[in-house]
Design a protein around this nucleic acid. Structure first.
Length: 494
RNA sequence: GGCGCCAUAGUCAAGCGGUCCAAGACAUCGCCCUUUCAAGGCGGUAACCUGGGUUCAAAUCCCAGUGGCGUCACCA
């Protein structure tokens, strides 16, 4: 026992004190869903806001659920999002290791310490169905709860498998405090003697979390509200050890609709899915931050926040209690805003691969196409379909030439194209201004509205009703030769 | 079902007893501008779950009902 006493003393001695310390503690199941991302973000934000330390811890105590490569997904997502951690499996730190499967001995020692303190007990029962159904089994009715030390020793000597259960007081109630929900009181009789150490010697999440959060000096425990009903048991555990209780921050879930949480099962997008759908990381983070949190005071109206601005503005008091439904439409709007706010160079850089998906002809300048796209694109993935016409003229019906607002029909369009073709043929230069002046001048000469001329030209040049940019831009980018070829083809239809 | 939590427009939400016949944003609808669609500008429709209290005064506090969510694993 004396060696254990020094062990515990050593562990306690390592715990950093004073600064805010938060941790994101995912289990490696291979999927960073939006709710997870938001929890990670809020956790990071609390640490950064208070100039504290952000820790990444991997919770892999369930041997059956490990997913190959899942940890990499977590690292990659965190890095891409700029949610840098100060301590973690890959960077180490004063309270290493940061992977729970590597801390196995620690949990065992603390579980046995709790047994010594009389706050936990060995349980040799094999759960039967009737016991499960009765519900009494683990609520103070477990026969193993009252085994004598001798009986326990005998069973241990016999090599019987066991778990260690928390011994919940039978009487009274437990009140814990949550930063979002306030004080919550639960009757102890409602709490079960939960398993702390499984028969494989590994801790349950509920136990490992408390041990690690304490040993790592975590000041703010941020997690999903599904843990709210377990929180009183955590409090009891902290008290049994005589440890200081951290600030709980239980966040309500991100929902796919009124009834269901976002989940992989229903095909709801993960962070990586959203990226693949053409959303920018910054827009995703900004939107997700506001899904369940809103700024206070003079920033109450602000919606666009950089990660840095979020870190400065974030406060726990602004986190909302009720679940929030994920609205891809609003995310799309945020994405459009971010896309437009980029410099033309930056936009071109992200858009180019999408442009090249549809436009392979090297004569077509991706910079010019990107410039047209920037103000009329909400998601990068919609780019190819918007600009396919630059590469090949789509097959189109001649009724596209009819537009009531522009006052065009077949006859008018025919006349317009007949006039435009020679004018463009003889145009000295081929620039935005020269084409513009040429066509506007022509409309004036023909005494028609600009639209009456522009509409047929654009339709013939693009072959589709909706285009990024107007007739002039399209002609310019296509080049004179291709433009004229297309206008003649259009004329043939009429 | 027990226990716990939550409840402002279709959605995200401000509101912490009077300044609320309730802000802002997305979506939606209409108008303007325009070389089409879009973008941009302007404007409209749309909410305090219900019922009781407390109070001079309630979206805001209390209680009940209803609804929703969570939880009741050797999963996290």
């Amino acid at each position: 026992m004396s060696t254990d006493a020094t062990y515990f003393a050593d562990m306690e001695a390592k715990i950093p004190h004073g600064k805010t310390r938060t941790r994101f503690a995912p289990s490696p199941t291979g999927y960073m869903h939006v709710g997870n991302l938001r929890t990670a973000l809020y956790t990071w934000l609390i640490a950064r806001n208070q100039k504290g330390t952000f820790i990444l811890r991997i919770e892999d105590t369930d041997q059956g659920r490990l997913v190959e490569g899942a940890v990499d997904v977590i690292y990659r997502t965190m890095t891409e999002c700029g949610l840098s951690h100060d301590e973690g499996p890959d960077v180490g730190g004063p309270v290493a290791p940061y992977i729970q499967s590597e801390r196995r001995d620690t949990y065992g020692k603390y579980a046995h310490l709790l047994v010594e303190k009389g706050c936990a007990y060995y349980c040799f029962c094999e759960k039967t169905e009737s016991q499960e159904d009765s519900g009494d089994f683990s609520r103070g009715e477990d026969p193993c709860r009252s085994l004598t030390a001798e009986e326990v020793q005998a069973k241990l000597n016999a090599g019987l498998p066991y778990v260690i259960r928390q011994k919940i007081p039978r009487e009274g109630s437990t009140t814990f405090h949550d930063a979002i929900f306030g004080d919550i009181t639960v009757e102890n009789s409602e709490l079960e003697d939960q398993i702390l150490l499984k028969s494989d010697g590994l801790p349950t999440y509920n136990f490992a979390n408390v041990i690690d959060d304490h040993l790592m000096g975590i000041t703010h425990v941020v997690r999903g509200s599904e843990y709210l009903s377990s929180a009183p048991k955590y409090d009891l555990l902290y008290r049994s050890f005589g440890w200081e209780i951290p600030t709980y921050v239980h966040c309500s879930p991100v929902m796919r609709d009124q009834h269901n949480k976002m989940s992989k099962r229903y095909g709801d997008p993960s962070y990586e899915d959203l990226k693949a759908q053409g959303f920018l990381t910054e827009a995703i983070l900004n939107y997700v931050a506001l899904l369940g949190w809103s700024p206070r005071g003079e920033q109450a109206e602000q919606e666009i926040f950089s990660l840095q601005e979020l870190a400065e503005a974030f406060d726990i008091g602004g986190i909302s209690k009720s679940p929030a439904i994920f609205d891809i439409g609003k995310l799309t709007h945020f994405n459009a805003l971010y896309l437009r706010a980029m410099t033309p160079e930056a936009f071109h850089a992200v858009a180019e691969p999408y442009i090249r998906q549809a436009v392979k002809n090297p004569a077509l300048d991706t910079k010019e196409i990107a410039a047209l796209l920037q103000a009329r694109c909400e998601r990068l993935t919609e780019i190819p379909e918007k600009i396919g016409f630059f590469e090949t003229l789509p097959a189109y019906e001649k009724d596209l030439f009819t537009n009531k607002k522009s006052k065009t029909n077949d006859e008018v369009s025919k006349a317009m194209l007949e006039a435009a073709i020679p004018a463009l043929e003889s145009l000295p230069g081929w620039t935005q201004d020269s084409i513009h002046d040429c066509l506007i001048g022509l409309a004036e000469k023909l005494a028609v509205k600009n639209a009456a001329l522009m509409w047929p030209v654009r339709i013939a040049a693009a072959g589709c009703a909706v285009t990024p940019g107007g007739a002039v831009e399209i002609c310019r980018i296509l080049g004179r030769e291709e433009t004229l070829r297309r206008l003649r083809l259009g004329l043939e239809k009429l």
